[in-house]
Design a protein around this nucleic acid. Structure first.
Lengths: 235, 235
DNA sequence: TGTACATCAGTGAACGCGCGTTCACTGATGTAC
DNA sequence: TGTACATCAGTGAACGCGCGTTCACTGATGTAC
């Protein structure tokens, strides 16, 4: 009798995986991916230094692999969770603007919570990602810009699916989504760094998003807003 | 006869200054301050490696000195330039909202241009600053957060001086200013990286700022906006 | 089913190099009397 | 005004160390026939 090989395969990490998670762990403690050393990573993974070359041709190569894995998780995680509140969608037109805006506000609140929860759960990966977005390696920077763009595309799709806003074009929504995704990097870092102010930061993020959409609606359909009695969420 | 000593003193850079500008120059070409080496910087400054220790006790020390100098220049540069459009100020109330908003929009346009011009002129310093804001050294990160806060304070003061917006409290304006300063880091980098899209990016930045203020006004004084016929600036 | 061979992840020793740091020293400038 | 001394920015040589990379080798796993 021997142990089922399937289970064993699942449990034993390959050398490549060990190197990647070693890099992740090391980068998470104050340092960036770019500042790690090959020997350092191999040591942390319990491997011989030159085993590194069996799996990656250089350091950017490893960084890319790590980022691809992480961004895949981020996107997947967000996509799974945001299925939940998709009950119907809100049509924002002149029929009952106050009610529609109230419901839209609820969706914004849920979405902000969802993102910040995710960030808090994947704290280390997230911080490393943000750092490399402005980091030294052009390759990693470019990869992370692309991640941000993808997230903004996802958000655009969501907004157009959940809140049907006839007055805003897809280009309008995409531009606002891009701004929101970018600003969320700051809110997220604040959120992680100041756990005692989490409620307040959540409120700020909600207000930020609402301001942008209200501003856009104010420019394109002032009548709607006038009837809607907007209210700031308190921080 | 000998040359006037005053002039000579001005022209000859001290060792400390040479080290600082060497670090600046090196950091500007793809690398961050944190990733520089002591010997590398000294070499670039034309000095003996250990002369470094005559002026700085470690690398963060140098980084801080560089950042203090740069942020001083940034603040001073912005402060000087923004004196110009201070002709009077715009009172935004119910008397003639359309005209007041039109003038406010002009001020936003001028301010965005001013910031982006400054960024383009100090390209290298600016990029290094942004990078260190998310960088490896906690000391530099904290220093740069403070710079951002100061800029947001300055902007708050300006907004309250130039546009008199009776419906927004100082806290409202300060929160929006913080959001704008942060988002401008992204717009600025875009602006530097894509010179062929500068007009478009300027337009995006203007729209961003207007959306926030319009959103805030829409929530607090919907009547004003309804009468004002808002218009998006095209990118 | 067995055998021969190729592939592949991993090892250990060795290389030359640039690094941060320390030491003892120099020469110019500033300061006290 | 001159002299003695202290301070300070700079030099050059030397240190031990960890780094990235290369080499020849091992043993397990997969594949062809």
């Amino acid at each position: 009798m021997r142990a089922a090989p399937v289970k064993a395969e699942k449990l034993v990490q390959s050398g490549r995986e060990r190197l990647m998670s070693a890099a992740m762990q090391l980068a998470a403690t104050t340092r960036s991916l770019a500042s790690l050393g090959l020997r350092e990573v191999a040591r942390h993974a319990g491997l011989n230094p030159n085993t590194f070359y069996r799996h990656f041709s250089n350091f950017d190569d490893l960084g890319l692999a790590v980022i691809e894995q992480l961004s895949g998780e981020l996107r997947k995680g967000l996509r799974e969770r945001r299925q939940r509140p998709a009950a119907g969608g809100v049509l924002l037109d002149a029929s009952n603007p106050a009610e529609a805006l109230r419901r839209a506000q609820g969706i914004v609140r849920e979405s902000v919570k969802l993102v910040l929860d995710f960030v808090a759960e994947h704290r280390e990966a997230y911080v490393v990602g943000i750092r490399e977005m402005h980091g030294t390696s052009p390759v990693l920077r470019k990869a992370l810009r692309k991640v941000m763009d993808t997230l903004a595309d996802d958000m655009t799709e969501d907004v157009q699916g959940l809140l049907h806003l006839p007055v805003l074009t897809q280009a309008d929504v995409r531009e606002i989504s891009g701004m929101v995704i970018r600003q969320m990097t700051f809110f997220s870092l604040d959120y992680l760094e100041h756990p005692e102010q989490q409620a307040q930061i959540r409120g700020q993020a909600e207000r930020f998003i609402l301001l942008l959409f209200w501003g856009a609606l104010a420019a394109k359909a002032p009548g709607l807003l006038g009837a809607a009695q907007l209210q700031f969420p308190e921080g």
